[in-house]
Amino acid sequence: MNANKVVLIGAGMVGAATLNSILMLNLVSELVVIDQNVQRAQGEVMDASHTTAFAYSSGANIRVGTYADCKDARIIVMTAGPSIKPGEKMDRQILAQQNAGIMTQVMSEITKYTQDAIIITVTNPVDVVTYLAKTRANYPGNKIFGTGTLLDTARMRQIIAQQVGVDSKNVHGYVLGEHGNSAFIPWNLVDIAGVPVDQLDRAFHMKAPIDKEKVFEGTKSAGFDIIQLKGYTSSGIAMSVCRLIKAIILDERSILPISVVLDGHYDTKNVALSVPCVVGKNGAEHILEVPLTSEERRQFKQCAQNLTDILGKIS
C-alpha cells in the first residue's frame, strides 16, 4: 500500500473540487482520478497539475487511472453519480435507486483489487449508498464510511459562530442521523468554550439567545439554497472529504460525525447513520455513543426508519 495515495472516483463538480482541495492539503504523493468520461478526467487532471508549480501546492503525481490503481491505494473517495439539480425536488433520497446501482458497480470493480483501502463515500443519498456499499461488497466496516453529517455539522457551527461573533472552529456540537431532512441537532452537546448553547447570550453579551429553530432550519436548507443559487454544491463537501483524509493520513484520531453502518449502536441495526466516530489510520476506529435525550433518541429512530424504508424499495 502507498501510504499517501488517494484514488478519486468521479470527476464531476464535486470530484473536481475535491481534487483541488486534496492537493492543497500537501499530504498526498499520488492522486489518481477515475471517471467514465475519460476526457473530462484528463481535463481536470491537466488543470489541477498546473497548480503543483506553486509553493502552496504539493508536488503530487496527478494522473488519470483505472480501477487497477485501487490495488495499492490508501484511500478511495467515491463521488460518482448524479446530484440534485435546480428545479428538482429538494430531497437527496430521489437519487437512491440510480446511485445505489452505480455504487454497486463501483464496489464490484474496487473489490477486484483491494479490501484494504479506506473508502469514503460522498455520493448521495450518502447513508443509503454507504450501507449498500458495505453490505453488498462485504467490505470491512471500519474501512468504509460516508461523509454523512460532517458538512451539516460544519454549517451548523458556522451559523452559530456568526450569531455569537466568534471563530466557527470554537463551536462544538454535531448534527446527527440522516444526511437529509430528518437530521437533528442534540443541543445538549452544543457549546462554545464549555459554555452551553442556552447560556451563550449571557456569556457573549448577545441581544437575544440563540434561535435554535432558525439555526436548525438554516443548517438543513443550506445545501439546497446553494444548489438553487449556483447549480450545485462543491466547496463545502470537498473540504469535508479533506478533513477525513487528513485525519486518516496523520492518524489524528479526531472525533467526527460520519455515516457508518450500525450494529446495535444506539439500539439500531441494518442501516448507516451519522454518529460521532474516532477517525484515524484504520478508518472509523470507534463509534461513540453520546448521551441523547428521549426526544433525540426518538428522532434518531425516525432517521433509521426513513432510511430502512428507502432501502426496502431498492432492488
Rank of each mutant, 00 (worst) to 15 (best):
I227A: 11
A3D: 15
Q158D: 13
D152F: 07
D72M: 07
G194M: 03
D191A: 14
L244N: 07
K212S: 05
I185G: 02
M90L: 06
L256P: 08
Y232T: 10
I192L: 06
V278F: 04
I119L: 06
M78S: 09
V215M: 07
L95H: 07
S259L: 04
E44F: 01
V190R: 03
A3M: 12
T219A: 07
G264F: 07
A60R: 01
P82S: 12
I159F: 12
H172D: 05
L8R: 05
K89A: 15
A183I: 01
I255E: 12
A48M: 08
K220M: 14
R253M: 09
G236N: 10
Q98G: 14
N170M: 08
V190G: 08
A3K: 13
K207N: 15
V106F: 08
S240Y: 01
H286F: 12
R157D: 04
V261T: 14
T147A: 12
R136C: 07
L176H: 05
L288V: 07
N138C: 12
H172S: 14
I314F: 06
G146C: 08
F204W: 01
A60G: 11
A203H: 13
Q39E: 11
N282L: 09
Q299D: 08
R297F: 02
V122R: 04
N37P: 00
I75P: 03
I310K: 01
A222R: 03
V164I: 12
G148A: 06
G12L: 04
V197T: 03
N138V: 02
I62F: 06
S21K: 13
H205P: 01
E178S: 10
A55G: 13
A161H: 06
L273I: 00
Y56W: 00
S21N: 13
L288N: 12
K112R: 15
F204D: 02
I94N: 08
F145D: 05
L27A: 08
E178A: 09
I22L: 15
L244F: 02
L229E: 14
A137W: 01
V77K: 04
I144E: 07
Q97C: 08
A222K: 02
D167K: 10
N4G: 09
K246E: 14
D211F: 04
Q299G: 02
F300E: 03
R298K: 13
S234C: 09
D263I: 00
K207D: 15
T114S: 15
Y113R: 11
K71G: 04
T293I: 03
V195P: 05
